[in-house]
Amino acid sequence: MSWVSKTLSSTLGRKLLMALTGLFLILFLVVHLAGNLQLLLPDGGDSFNVYAHTMANNPFIKVVSIGNFAFILLHVIYSIVLTQHNKKSRPVAYAMSNEGKSSTWASRNMGILGTVILIFLVVHLKGFWYEAKFGTLPTTMIDGESFSDIYAIVAAAYANIWYVLIYVVSMGFLAFHLSHGFASAFQTLGLNHVKYSPLIQKVGAGFSILIPALFALIPIVMYIQSLS
């Protein structure tokens, strides 16, 4: 085995990949949210449609989105590898365990939280990414030019209360995943320091509430708009 593959198959190496892909996904969440918030602009979806069009046709964004899919896949694969390995490391469970005293629930259930996020991702990609890429889309005229009306697809989805509920609940799971994951990734990278760790923990706590809350706000507002 080369030193690279040997390192990446060690417990520390695998965790390094989890942390790096996790941090990339965190960055992606911010960019994605910034784009999505345009759904709430009161212009009938024009800004969002122009934005979606630009994203879909920019070669740089294409590369990033392939990388994004690869990183999600890596994150999921390594989460399975690590979780299985960790389960095997304790073949006989304790009859009585008081784990809740010494660690948070989220930190002990990253696999369950991640699995729900994964199911959400599949539903989400099927509903929007797949439709936008392979479906037949309605079109809309903006400033005399024809654009795919992705806003209409999103608005239709968010008029469905079940869709909205799935979104909001999933964002709750994402919040818990991030409440542990954000600071944990820095610890994995070895970034634990008296000067910076308190800040990382605070930013992580804020991030894990704010970002999922804003994501969840979009379907809620659009559902209410659909009622009138």
Binding site: L12, K15, L16, K88, K101, S102, T104, G190, L191, N192
Partner: peptide, 30 residues
Amino acid sequence: EGFGACTNTGACEAQCPKGISITNIARMNR
């Protein structure tokens, strides 16, 4: 030896009778 990987739950530090800190784990990773 077959020990598990770290999920950074912090349970070890909370239960260590000698108060060993998980800052040591970050140092080992570095």
